[in-house]
C-alpha cells in the first residue's frame, strides 16, 4: 500500500480524532453533571435518581420521534425540536415530582435519610421503566447521518459527524443559557442566594422551597437534553443506561468541584477526553481505571475539586 502522507500527519490526525471523540462524550457528561452539582450546591444532597431522569428523557424522546415519524412528519429540525421540548417538559415534571415525593418530606432530617431515599427512587424508576418498556434494548435508525472527513483514506482518516457537531452546539447553547439564567435572572439570583445560605435566604422573604424545586426542574430538563442528544447519537436505549451515565456524570461533577457549575462543565469534558485518550493510547480496558485514578489524584491534592471552593468552617 502506498503511503502518501507522512507518519507525523497520521499521528496528528489520530490525536485530533480522539480529541473530537472525547469532547463529544465529555459534553454530554457535563450536561448531566450540572443536575448533580446544582442540587448539591443548594441543599448539599446528592440526587442519585438523576441518572434515571436522563434515561427517562431518552425514552420520551424516542417515543416522540417514533410517533411523529409514524404520523408522516419528515422535517428533521421539526422532529428534533418537538422531541427536545416534550422530553424536557416530561423530565422536568419527573424532577419536580421526585423532589416533592422523595426529598421534601425528609428535609431538615439527617442527610443520610435523603441519600437512601434517592437510591430508592433510582431503583424504583429503573424498574418502573423496565416494567412498562421491557428490559431489551430499543433502537431507532440513524436520523442524522453524514459528516466531514479529513486526511487520506489510505493511511488514517479522521471523521467528524454532523451529529457530533450538533451535540457540541446544543450543549454550548444550553450552557450559555443556563449561565445567563443563573447570573442575570431574578430566579438565578435567588438560586445563588440559597446556595450561600439557605436559612438566611428564607428569612429574607424568598420561598426557598420553590427555589429548590426549581433547581430540580432545571437539572432534570438539562438531563433530558443530554438524553435526546445521546439517544440520537447512539440510537439505542434500555432501562439501565441511567446508572452508568449517572455515575460518570457524578464523577465529572466531583472532579470539577461539586456545587460549581463551570466546574461540572470542565469536569465532564476532562473526563471524556481522558477516557478517549486512554482507549486510544493504552487500552479501552483501562479507560475507567485511568479516569477514576485521575479523580483520586485530583481529590488528594484539591479535595474541593478543580473549580470548587474550599469549605470554610463556620464558627
Amino acid at each position: 500500500m502506498l503511503r502518501v502522507t507522512n507518519p507525523m500527519q497520521e499521528q496528528f490526525l489520530y490525536f485530533v480524532q480522539q480529541l473530537l471523540n472525547g469532547l463529544t462524550i465529555g459534553s454530554t457528561y457535563a450536561l448531566i453533571a450540572i443536575g448533580y452539582t446544582m442540587v448539591y450546591g443548594i441543599i448539599g444532597m446528592i440526587n442519585f435518581a438523576h441518572g434515571e431522569v436522563y434515561m427517562i428523557g431518552t425514552y420520551i424522546a424516542f417515543i416522540v420521534i417514533a410517533g411523529l415519524t409514524y404520523m408522516g412528519l419528515e422535517s428533521m429540525p421539526m422532529i428534533f425540536m418537538a422531541a427536545l421540548l416534550v422530553s424536557m417538559v416530561v423530565a422536568a415534571t419527573y424532577g419536580f415530582s421526585i423532589e416533592r415525593v422523595a426529598y421534601r418530606p425528609l428535609r431538615g432530617r439527617t442527610r443520610l435519610l435523603a441519600l437512601i431515599s434517592a437510591i430508592g427512587m433510582s431503583i424504583f424508576l429503573q424498574n418502573f421503566v423496565r416494567l412498562f418498556q421491557g428490559s431489551r434494548d430499543i433502537a431507532i435508525p440513524t436520523l442524522i447521518s453524514g459528516g466531514w472527513t479529513f486526511g487520506d483514506a489510505s493511511t488514517f482518516e479522521a471523521s467528524l459527524s454532523y451529529m457530533q457537531v450538533i451535540i457540541w452546539v446544543v450543549t454550548l447553547i444550553t450552557m450559555a443559557a443556563l449561565t445567563l439564567f443563573i447570573t442575570r435572572s431574578k430566579w438565578g439570583r435567588a438560586c445563588r442566594a440559597c446556595a450561600q445560605d439557605l436559612g438566611m435566604t428564607n428569612l429574607l422573604g424568598i420561598n426557598t422551597n420553590n427555589i429548590i424545586a426549581l433547581t430540580f426542574v432545571v437539572g432534570a430538563a438539562l438531563a433530558a437534553v443530554a438524553g435526546l442528544l445521546l439517544g440520537l447519537y447512539y440510537g439505542v436505549v434500555n432501562p439501565y443506561i441511567g446508572f452508568i451515565a449517572g455515575l460518570k456524570a457524578f464523577t465529572a461533577a466531583v472532579l470539577g468541584g461539586i456545587g460549581s457549575i463551570p466546574g461540572a462543565m470542565l469536569g465532564g469534558i476532562l473526563l471524556g477526553i481522558t477516557e478517549a485518550m486512554t482507549s486510544a493510547y493504552f487500552s479501552s480496558e483501562y479507560k475507567d481505571v485511568v479516569a477514576f485514578s485521575l479523580l483520586v489524584l485530583v481529590l488528594l491534592f484539591r479535595p474541593w475539586g478543580l473549580l470548587g471552593k474550599p469549605e470554610v468552617e463556620k464558627i
Binding site: 472525547g22 488514517f156 439505542v236 439501565y240 443506561i241 452508568i244 478517549a276 479501552s284 480496558e285 479507560k287
Partner: peptide, 20 residues
C-alpha cells in the same frame, strides 16, 4: 486484544484505534 465494558455505549475511541 482488548476488553470493553458491558453496558458501554460509546466505542468511538476504540473504532478510531481499529482504523489506525
Amino acid at each position: 486484544f482488548e476488553g470493553v465494558t458491558s453496558g458501554d455505549k460509546d466505542f468511538s475511541a476504540l473504532i478510531g484505534k481499529l482504523k489506525k
